[in-house]
Design a protein around this nucleic acid. Structure first.
Lengths: 187, 187
DNA sequence: CCCAAATCTAAACGATTGTTTAGATATTTA
DNA sequence: TAAATATCTAAACAATCGTTTAGATTTGGG
């Protein structure tokens, strides 16, 4: 056919994702993306259509990175203990990826909470309700919990993740551990 | 002297504060501020110097609004129970002011977490450490708690406030209550 | 080997950002 | 009432935003 791309889409998406993770959507400009991704605007637009499209791709990239801890959580069989380990995994993957910026999805959830961007809000809602459903399933393995208790605790854990995201930005390892332990103390 | 101002600074700051609260700093433009405040850019700049200055004023305005619940918390004498009531007060003041946007300070803390805006970051840190110190003081009234426990629980509560801010945006009254109750279950 | 097609560079696009300025209008004081 | 001065309107400012375009460059197939 014709000339070949001089970059690999997966690689530049990964770089964009880290930039979005670090700065959020609005505070990341096309100029910054050009520099970080190492390609220029034309290439970005021909590959991803728009900044918005690139952001959606970045969210999917992030999703694939955390997919394995989700799978681990789903396939585990120790109930609440698995959720706690999921919390630990969540902060660890952040520091593994050299990023002390909390969770990209939680950050995005916060940034777009008052936006009317249907696509992204939908993406967030799907993520949140998926996570909540997994929590519910895990909590249900303890037959002594009433359904009301299960729902109540699932909501609590979902919201506790916001605190965790904030913690992983500024708090020490020890403080994060304390927070997680205290969160699960009476679940 | 000369011509009089056709607006009262305190009133227009209040309106600006609500707009910032609703949309965040970056997503609030001068045009939006002109419309909401009912005065034009010249007046805004002559009164507040810059968008940034107006935002700082708005933060101070928010601080004065929540001052009474802080005073109430400080002057109370039921230890942890007072902190719990402070949590309830925090969400109630939001709905009183017709705003389901969480806490302006928590929102700002999140939005500026990766910024290098020293003034605002400092403002946030002062607020957070003040709040933490009040928590510590309240927790200390229970003499059975070790100092380590007190610090641990204070951190936990500070982070729990991030979950609360998220909750007050999307969750129902009932879910918010459940969250607060569960937060204090083992404190 | 040359034409066709895809990707590159780099400049320009219009819109919007926060900020400033020029000039008209209103108010106070002498 | 007239001069002084602060506030108003409204336009323009430069910079940046995300996006598009024109033209050079590289590649592969007939």
């Amino acid at each position: 056919m014709a000339r070949k791309k001089e970059y690999i889409e997966e690689e530049v998406i990964d770089k964009a994702m880290h930039l979005f993770w670090h700065n959020g959507y609005e505070n990341t400009s096309m100029k910054m993306l050009e520099q970080e991704m190492g390609i220029n605007k034309f290439s970005i637009y021909s590959s991803f259509g728009s900044k918005h499209g690139l952001f959606l791709k970045s969210l999917k990239c992030y999703n694939s990175k955390i997919k394995n801890i989700f799978e681990k959580l789903k396939n585990a069989s120790n109930g609440v203990e698995d959720i706690k380990e999921f919390f630990y995994d969540s902060v660890n993957i952040g520091s593994q990826l050299g990023n002390k910026k909390g969770c990209l999805l939680t950050n995005t959830y916060n940034e777009f909470s008052e936006s009317d961007d249907v696509l992204i809000k939908n993406e967030m809602n799907v993520f949140m309700s998926n996570l909540k459903n997994i929590f519910i399933e895990k909590l249900k393995t303890d037959a002594s919990k009433s359904e009301e208790t299960v729902l109540k605790q699932a909501n609590f854990l979902l919201l506790a993740k916001h605190g965790l995201a904030a913690a992983s930005r500024v708090n020490t390892q020890k403080e994060i551990e304390d927070y997680i332990e205290m969160t699960f103390k009476n679940i």
